[in-house]
């Protein structure tokens, strides 16, 4: 199978995956105790008020009608062309377009995820390599220990510790928000503040947004790095034993060439696959990180809306998360094929 037909197959396969995901969220939300209509009113409402609200939200219709209508909205091409995002329905809490809300919250999550991933993989792979090279030494045990600990530390705990040290005590870094509130955010191009400010050549805004990103992405990145340490170490130990590594040493190649160009370059392939899978976990972690750091992303959006049983908002956010994870795993597959000549066709 050629790479192109492989990619097309993969894209087509995301459709049933997303459909399944969506159906599950749709059902779970409605099985969950709590009524969005009751939660909509601050004080106790009369049955008539409740009834008219229910009708306005379309919740009076049979479940399967709601389901079909929701799916129909998703594939409404006209709507997508007009708004630039699919019709995810109106929020049951604010009556705003869910698509629009998600569209503005998602870049914050994406930016956090991106930097966390970089931190997690750089720390994790580097420590994993060092650990494998000093196999069974004190350093190896130390790194493995740290890796296991970070794996087990709750995100909010590490986040709060960082906030206390770097924000409250040392006063070096902001403890929340995407950018210092007295600085205007850069004009939206991609929605990623660091990228947008660079595109506009504004270094000041770039550093301001980078400073705001540092603590949350460090928190999430360090927590995720534990898995990378373990994975890298295991794969490196396996690869370092392989004949071509010994053969490379036997040719007198530099130690760094053997470690990185031979061992890591090959051990990296399974790590890359894991990086793709990690993205789902990363987004889960992002929800907690965003809450800890008042980060106005999609994770916090979900947490806010779940309290109101805002069905449409949750469904929309989950679809976007799902789409994103699928997209990342597709990119990973393509990258894998690119990095491994045995797969390239």
């Amino acid at each position: 199978m050629g790479l192109r037909s492989y990619i097309i197959t993969r894209i087509l396969l995301t459709i049933p995956t997303l459909l399944l995901l969506l159906s599950m969220v749709f059902l779970i939300m409605r099985v969950l105790p709590g009524d969005p209509v009751a939660l909509h009113f601050e004080k106790k409402a009369t049955p008539e008020q409740m009834e008219s609200m229910r009708r306005a939200l379309g919740l009076d219709k049979p479940l399967w009608t709601q389901y079909i209508e929701y799916l129909g909205g998703l594939v409404d091409i006209g709507y997508i062309l007009e708004h630039g995002y699919p019709n995810l329905g109106k929020s049951m809490q604010t009556f705003e377009e869910v698509g629009g809300q998600i569209f503005s919250a998602f870049p914050a999550t994406l930016e956090l995820a991106f930097y966390s991933m970089i931190i997690a993989s750089v720390i994790g792979i580097l420590l994993g390599v060092i650990s494998s090279k000093s196999y069974n030494s004190i350093l190896d045990h130390l790194i493995r220990g740290v890796g296991t600990v970070t794996y087990a530390v709750p995100i909010f705990f590490l986040g709060i510790v960082f906030q206390l040290i770097f924000g409250v005590y040392l006063r070096w870094l902001p403890t929340g928000l995407r950018i210092n509130p007295v600085v205007d955010p850069p004009a939206t191009i991609t929605g990623l503040y660091t990228i947008d400010s660079l595109l506009q050549g504004n270094l000041f805004k770039f550093f301001e947004s980078l400073k705001a990103l540092l603590l949350p992405s460090l928190t999430l990145g360090i927590i995720l790095s534990g898995m990378f340490v373990r994975m890298t170490r295991t794969n490196m130990l396996e690869t370092l034993r392989l004949d071509f590594v010994t053969a490379a040493k036997a040719r007198g190649l530099k130690e760094s060439t053997v470690t990185y160009g031979y061992a890591l370059r090959n051990a990296f392939l399974p790590i890359l696959t894991m990086m793709g899978l990690q993205f789902a976990i990363l987004l889960g972690g992002a929800i907690l990180t965003e809450t800890t750091f008042s980060w106005p992303g999609l994770g916090r959006y979900i947490v806010d809306r779940i309290n109101f049983r805002d069905y449409t908002a949750i469904q929309g956010a989950v679809v976007v998360f799902g789409l994103f994870v699928t997209l990342v795993s597709l990119v990973v597959d393509i990258l894998y094929a690119y990095l491994d000549p045995r797969i390239r066709l």
């Binding site: 004949d243 071509f244 053969a247 490379a248 040719r251 090959n266 990095l339 491994d340 000549p341 045995r342």
Partner: peptide, 16 residues
């Protein structure tokens, strides 16, 4: 001094 190994199938870097 150069060394030639037993198994040529695994002696070369597969990604090089």
């Amino acid at each position: 001094a150069a060394y030639i190994f037993q198994d040529p199938m695994t002696s070369l870097n597969p990604v090089k």
